[in-house]
Design a protein around this nucleic acid. Sequence first.
DNA 1: TTAGGGTTAG
Length: 420
Amino acid sequence: MQSLGFYRLDQATLTTILSACDRPELGFVNKMVHCLAVLNGFQREISVGNALITSYFKCGFSSSGMQVFYEMLERNVITWTAIISGLVQSELYRDSLRKFVEMTNGLVEPNSLTYLSSLMACSGLQALREGCQIHGRLWKLGLQSDFCIESALMDMYSKCGSMGDALQIFESAVQLDEVSMTVILVGFAQNGFEEEARHFFVKMLEAGAEIDPNMVSAILGVFGVDTSLGLGQQIHSLVIKRSFGSNPFVGNGLINMYSKCGDLEDSIKVFSRMPCMNSVSWNSMIAAFARHGDGSRALHLYEEMRLIDPEMGKYAAEQLILSAPEKPSPYILLANIYSSKGRWKERAKTIKRMKEMCVAKETGISWIEIENNLHSFAVEDKMHPQAEIIYGVLAGLYWHMIDEGYVLDKRYILSYVNQD
DNA sequence: TTAGGGTTAG
C-alpha cells in the first residue's frame, strides 16, 4: 500500500479501493485513501465523497462519514442514501430519519433505496406513524411492490407491533423469499405469537418453500418449555440434511431448543460436535446446565470458558444467578469478572446483591482468585484449622478492602498464604 | 475499472 502514493491515482481507482473497505479492521485504509484523495485533489468529487461516506460508516467511523457529508459541495440522491443508510447501520435511527426529512425538504428526490433505508430507521425506532407515511408515499409512487421494499415494510410493521399489517403484505406479495419468511417468523416470535410462528414454519415447509439457515435459527428461537420435541427433531434432521450445522446461529439455536424442551443430553451432543463454537454457544450450554439444575457442570464449563476470556462469562453468570438466586457462587464468579477488569463499582454492586439474596446459611464462605484459579474457603473445607482461620480472615479482609475502593495486589495474599 | 439496499442467536 505504501507505493500507492507514488502513482497518479484517478477517482475510479480510489472509489474501487474504498468499496473494498467494508470492515472495521480496514478503517485505516479508509483514512489513507481519504488522504490520497485530498493530495490528488479529488476530495470534492461527488463519487469519491459518496464512496468515502459509505466506507467510513461500514468501518464504524460515523463521525468521519458525517464530516465528509458536511464538507461536500454537491450532493445527489446517492449521497443522501449513503448517509441515511450509514446512520441506520450505526443504529443512529433518529439522525437517519432527520436526514430523510431534510432531504425531502430539499430538491433531491428519494428513490426506492432511500425509502428502504428510511424504513429500516422506522423499524429501529418503532416509529409506526413515520413508517406509514413512507408506505403511503411508496404506494403513490408505485414502488411498494419491489421485493426488498416489501420485506422492509413487513419488518417495519412487525417491529412496530402491527403483525396484521405485516401479514397482509406477506400474503399479497408477488415474490416471497427466505428473507420475508424470516421477517414474519421473527415478528411472530418478538410479538409473543410463538404458536403462530411454529404453525407458519410448518405451513412453509409443507408448501415446499426454500428454507435457509436464518429461517431455521429464527424458528428454533420460539421453542419453549411447553413445546413438544417432535418439531424440533424434525428441524434438526433438516439441518443435517441441508448441512446447516456450520452456521453458528443454527447450532446455538439447537442447543437452546433441546435444553428448553427438556432434552439436556441432545443439547450436550450438539454443543460437543459444533464446528463453530463461540461465546454465545458456550453461554447457551452453561445456561442449559443451569436450567436443568446441574450447577456443578455449569460451573465447570464456566471455569473453562473463563480461562479463554473472563468477559465472555458475564451472561453465563447472570443465567446461573437466575437459576439459583440463593446460591452465592455465581455472584462471586460475576464479581471476579468485574475484579479482573478493574470494575470495582460493578463488583461491589454484585456483592451487595449477593448479600441481599443469600442469607445467613452460607455466610461462612469466602472466595479468592489466585493466579487465575478460583479458591473457596468454606467452613466445611478440610483444611488445617489454623490455615482455615488465616485464609478466612485474609480473604474477608481482601474483599472488604476492595469493596471500600482500595486496589490491592494479590501477591500480598499469596505471601501470607505461603507462611502457613 | 467509479458511489447507495431487505431478515438473523445466549
